[in-house]
């Protein structure tokens, strides 16, 4: 490392920390202050660290709403991810392996899913007709529908790198089509499946807009919705609001610490021409 690189590096580090770390410090510090101190919005350290008090206050707020929210968000995320991962892999597999005159049309549909903003009110109407409105399983299905395109594209490009000979060897060995997929192909999709699971679970867990529309009502709150609801309720208790932000930030932080590489890989796929 040259001297110049060290100097620029130090300058970049200082700037980087200033710009990108201070907001999180601010969140963390405000979350452990008293309400009065928090309202000053400063970066000064709290005179008394009230982590536990604030933590319990947020948890207990509105009759333990945050715990319910965590439960709901977890159910939605896990449910949607399990459905998405397997079925998106199946779709990616068939459209990659089976060239047909329909492919152009199927691609157009997939790209539409990436690009077109969902038509919300007609969706609400439809969910009501199907008795899925304001239900967790309805929300799960919505997340599957909205996350499908991205997942299929990731699987498809990964499957393109698995030689077709493997499918054929399995067919010769007497495998039925579903056995070829589940016994030979699916086990080979582990790396990309991990990526899809991570990226989609962060997306679904952090989703605010869709639960806002499709999952109104106290019983169905998700983590992001509680945050939004607390914003008005805690306007004079900044410390509790920020404790809530802190708690909402923790699951992605944990994911990030353990799976940084795979998440980055999934999110940057496509940079290298895909």
């Amino acid at each position: 490392m040259k001297r110049q690189q060290v100097i620029i590096g130090i300058v970049a580090l200082v700037l980087g920390v200033l710009l990108f770390a201070t907001p999180f410090m601010f969140i963390g510090i405000t979350a452990v202050k008293s309400a009065a101190e928090a309202s000053h919005l400063g970066l000064s350290l709290p005179s008394k660290w009230l982590f536990w008090e604030n933590f319990m206050a947020v948890i207990k707020a509105r009759n333990y709403m945050l715990l319910l929210a965590y439960f709901n968000s977890t159910v939605i995320t896990v449910g949607a991810i399990s459905l998405l991962a397997v079925s998106a892999a199946m779709i990616g597999y068939v459209i990659q392996r089976r060239p047909s005159k329909w492919n152009g049309f199927i691609y157009a549909l997939i790209l539409a899913g990436l690009m077109i903003p969902p038509a919300v009110v007609p969706t609400i109407w439809l969910l009501k007709e199907l008795h899925l409105f304001k239900t967790l399983h309805g929300m799960i299905l919505i997340q599957v529908a909205y996350g499908l395109s991205f997942s299929v594209l990731l699987f498809r490009s990964f499957i393109a790198s698995i030689p077709r000979d493997l499918d054929e060897a399995a067919i010769i060995d007497g495998a039925k089509p579903w056995q070829v997929f589940f016994k030979v192909i699916l086990p080979l999709l582990k790396p990309i499946t991990i990526t899809v699971v991570l990226v989609q679970s962060v997306t679904i867990f952090n989703d605010f807009t869709n639960p806002l529309y499709y999952l109104p009502g106290k019983d169905n709150v998700t983590v992001q919705l509680t945050l939004y609801n607390f914003q008005s309720q805690f306007s004079s208790q900044m410390n509790l609001l920020f404790m809530n932000i802190l708690l909402v930030t923790i699951p992605p932080l944990i994911m990030f610490i353990f799976f940084n590489k795979q998440i980055v890989k999934g999110m940057t796929a496509g940079a290298v021409k895909g």
Binding site: E168, A169, L188
Partner: peptide, 8 residues
């Protein structure tokens, strides 16, 4: 097969 096509 030419590529052997062993299940990895």
């Amino acid at each position: 097969f030419q590529s052997y096509a062993l299940y990895p």
